[in-house]
Design a binder for these strands. Structure first.
Lengths: 195, 195
DNA sequence: TATATAACTTAACACTGTTAACCATGCGTT
DNA sequence: AACGCATGGTTAACAGTGTTAAGTTATATA
C-alpha cells in the first residue's frame, strides 16, 4: 500500500472518529509516521486531500442509496426506498455525510467539476426514476432533472437538521425523518388540487 | 457606543464581506484599534462572539420572514410568502444565513439553549399558521410543530444547495427555488390520494 | 560511473485562538 | 487623604495551524 493510500485511510479514520475539524496535516503525518510536509508530495494541499475524502464518501453514499432496490419496484417505492437509504446513511455516518456538504462556498469554485461526476451520476439516476414515474402518470413534474435536485435538496435539509442537532428536543428524530420523507414524496405525487 | 458593540459591528461586517472563515480575533482587534486579548474581556471566546453574531442574524431572518405578510391572508398564502421570504433572505444574505447554520455539531452541546429562544419562536409561529390551516381543512398534517420543523428543514436544504453552489449549472437557481418551494408546500396540502 | 528524479527531511514563515502576568485608571471605604 | 480593589486595557508567550523553501538520500536510468 502506498503512502498516499495510508494518508487517505488514516485521515478518513480521523475524520470519522473525531470530525473534520480535528483533522490536521501534522496529526495525519504522525499517524502514518512521516513528516507533515510529505503529505504535500501526494496532495496539493489540505483541500485536495479533503476532496479525495469527499470523493470516496460520495462513492459510499452512492452505493448505500441503491441498497434493497429491486428492479421491478414501481418508481414511487423506488424513490421511497432511496429516500430512506439517504437518511439512514446520513445519520449512521454523520461525519462522512458532513464532509460531503461541508466545503464552504468561497472555496467551491476551486473544485474541479470532473470530481463531481459521481454525484452527478446520482442525480441522473434519480431523474431517470422520476422520468419513469412521469410516463406512468405517477408523478406530476415538469423537469425530471430539476425535480431530482429538488428531492435531493429537501432530503439534505432534513438530514442536516438532524445531524447538526437543531431539532427540537420535544421531537423524536426518527418520527421527524419519516414524516418529512412522506411530505417530500407527497410533493411529487399526481393529484387533483382541491377546488 | 461600547467596545463590545464595536467588536460586534466590525466582526459582523467582516463576516458579511469576507465570510466567517476569514474572521479572526486579531483582525477584529486591529479594526477596532485594540489588542486582540481585549476581546476576551467582552466575550468568553471566539465561539461566544460567533454566538452573538448568530443571534443577531436570526433576529434579522425572523424579521425578514414576516415581510409583506397580511393578517387576513389565508394560511396557504401565508406559508408561501414566508417560504419566499426565507429563500430570498438566504440568497441575499448568504454569509449571514450561513453563520446561522454553520456551527458544527461537535460544538453544539456547548451552546446554551436559551440563546435559541428566538429561533424557537419562529417555529412556534410557523406551527401556529399550520394549525390554522389544519382547522380550516387546508392542510393535512398530524403534528403542526413537527410539520413546522419539516417545512423549515426542507427550505433550508434548498437554500443551502443554492448558496453552496452545488446546483447543476444547467439548472437556473431561480426556477429551482420556485419549483422546490411549490413541491414543499404541495406536501402539506389536503388531497385525495389517487386510487 | 554520472546524473536525474523521486521521496523524504528539517527549518522556517505567517498565521491562528487563548492564557498569564502586568499596568493604569477611577471609585468607594476607612 | 490614603488604601484597596475592580475595570479595562496591555505585552509576551504557548501551542497549534497550513504551507513553502531548501536540503538530503536513495534509486533508477543514460
Amino acid at each position: 500500500m502506498s503512502l498516499r493510500d495510508d494518508i487517505l485511510v488514516e485521515s478518513r479514520d480521523m475524520l470519522i472518529k473525531h470530525g473534520f475539524g480535528k483533522v490536521s496535516m501534522r496529526k495525519i503525518a504522525k499517524k502514518v509516521n512521516v513528516s507533515a510536509t510529505s503529505i504535500y508530495l501526494h496532495f496539493k494541499n489540505k483541500d485536495d486531500l479533503l476532496l479525495a475524502l469527499i470523493e470516496s464518501s460520495i462513492e459510499k453514499l452512492s452505493e448505500a442509496l441503491n441498497k434493497q432496490l429491486v428492479q421491478d419496484d414501481n418508481p414511487l417505492t423506488k424513490l421511497e426506498k432511496m429516500a430512506d437509504n439517504f437518511l439512514s446513511f446520513a445519520i449512521e455516518n454523520p461525519q462522512e455525510y458532513e464532509i460531503i456538504y461541508m466545503v464552504r462556498p468561497e472555496e467551491m469554485p476551486k473544485y474541479p467539476t470532473e470530481k463531481f461526476q459521481q454525484i452527478r451520476k446520482i442525480y441522473e439516476m434519480l431523474a431517470e426514476i422520476i422520468r419513469e414515474g412521469q410516463t406512468k402518470k405517477l408523478f406530476q413534474v415538469e423537469d425530471p432533472l430539476m425535480s431530482a435536485y429538488t428531492l435531493w435538496a429537501q432530503l439534505h435539509g432534513v438530514a442536516s437538521v438532524v445531524i447538526s442537532k437543531r431539532l427540537d428536543t420535544r421531537i423524536p428524530s426518527g418520527e421527524f425523518m419519516n414524516q418529512a420523507k412522506d411530505h417530500i414524496i407527497q410533493g411529487f405525487i399526481t393529484q387533483k388540487t382541491p377546488a
